[in-house]
Simulated assay, not measured.
Amino acid sequence: MLSRALGLGLGCAADRLLADPARFHPVAGFGRLAGTLEHRTYADDRSAGALHVTVLVGTTALAGAAIERATRKRPVPHALATAIATWAVLGGTSLDREAAAVDRLLADDRLPDARVRLTHLVGRDTRRLDEGEVARAVIESVAENTSDAVVAPLVLGAVGGIPALLGYRAVNTLDAMVGHRDERYERFGWAAARLDDLVNLPGSRVAALLAAALAPVVGGDPHEALLAWRRDAAGHPSPNAGPVEAAFAGALAVRLGGENTYSGRVEDRHVLGCGRPAARHDISRARTLARAVEAGATAIAVLIALRPRRRGAPGPSPGRP
């Protein structure tokens, strides 16, 4: 529908202009609700985690469906509702600002402060990272979250409208809250993590393809980006972060991946790309590529939303009397 396409475009523009509010963000409110419910639903098994996810995601998607149904025959309210939902679930501008903040601290030779600010973007232990490792972490976060917080919701929203937008953000938020491989959430968070992998599958592939296609924006080679994706992505533990981070590595002609430390546990994230080690100046290049990917994803989402709807197969041609 034209109103869905317009709403997606307006929501992207609102995110670019306004970013996320410091207070009273809808996603933060959902997170508080999920945390409260967890006190009642938590148990150290997968079924309890599946119930937790089903209740929260199902309720959110149903609320989105109710909004969609109430506005779908009124183009202006429908466009506005879609725009608000799109703005609420996107996080591209906040991601870009956090990456820029770390970049500025490194430029000012404030490595300890950059390590602390980096914790806003990544979950790894940042206390002993050198400048190159900080840059690598920022670029990896920009790549992965451009897929998770921009491309995936736009693609799903273009196909499924407001219910898909809100339901996706509910899944993604729950994965961030409980989808961890630690003692508390290994089993309870299993359903959230697996569902997040599933709903991010199409968006991550679109994001990787866009990163490869738009590599010339940062002086890169699309062939190298596709080659890095094909060669290196499977070694990454995430089926969705792997393709996007590998495509960014190839597009930027840098090496990403390697060993990260999480709460004293070392994980090998595999080496992505075969270029030089990432450096501070590559952060701005990664931000430029991410913005280009966001623009491309917005265009794709609008085109998907505008596609003709089939209303059933045509009837038989009239025969001769």
Rank of each mutant, 00 (worst) to 15 (best):
H236F: 09
N172C: 12
P163H: 10
L272D: 01
Y262L: 13
G203L: 02
G160E: 10
N240D: 14
A241V: 06
A292Y: 01
L165I: 04
R287E: 12
V178I: 14
D175Y: 04
E267W: 06
E144G: 06
L201N: 07
P163S: 08
A158G: 15
R230Q: 14
H281T: 10
V199K: 06
R276I: 06
R187I: 00
P237Y: 09
R231I: 13
A249H: 02
L156R: 05
L256R: 00
V266W: 06
D182T: 11
V159F: 11
V206F: 02
R194H: 13
E267L: 15
R269P: 08
R287Q: 11
A247F: 02
L226M: 15
V206H: 06
R181W: 10
Y168S: 05
A170E: 11
P237M: 11
H281W: 09
A191M: 03
G275F: 03
V159N: 06
G275A: 07
H223D: 15
E186A: 15
V171T: 08
W190L: 14
H281D: 14
R205W: 00
R280T: 00
A213G: 15
A292V: 10
A149R: 05
N240K: 12
G189L: 13
C274W: 13
L154R: 08
R291F: 05
G160Y: 09
A246S: 15
N172I: 10
H270C: 15
G258W: 09
H270I: 05
A213L: 14
N200V: 01
A211Q: 08
G167I: 02
V155Y: 01
R276Y: 04
A247R: 03
G179H: 04
D182A: 09
S284A: 15
L198D: 07
A213W: 01
L226D: 01
E144H: 08
R255S: 12
A290E: 08
E259A: 15
H223P: 01
A246G: 08
D282T: 00
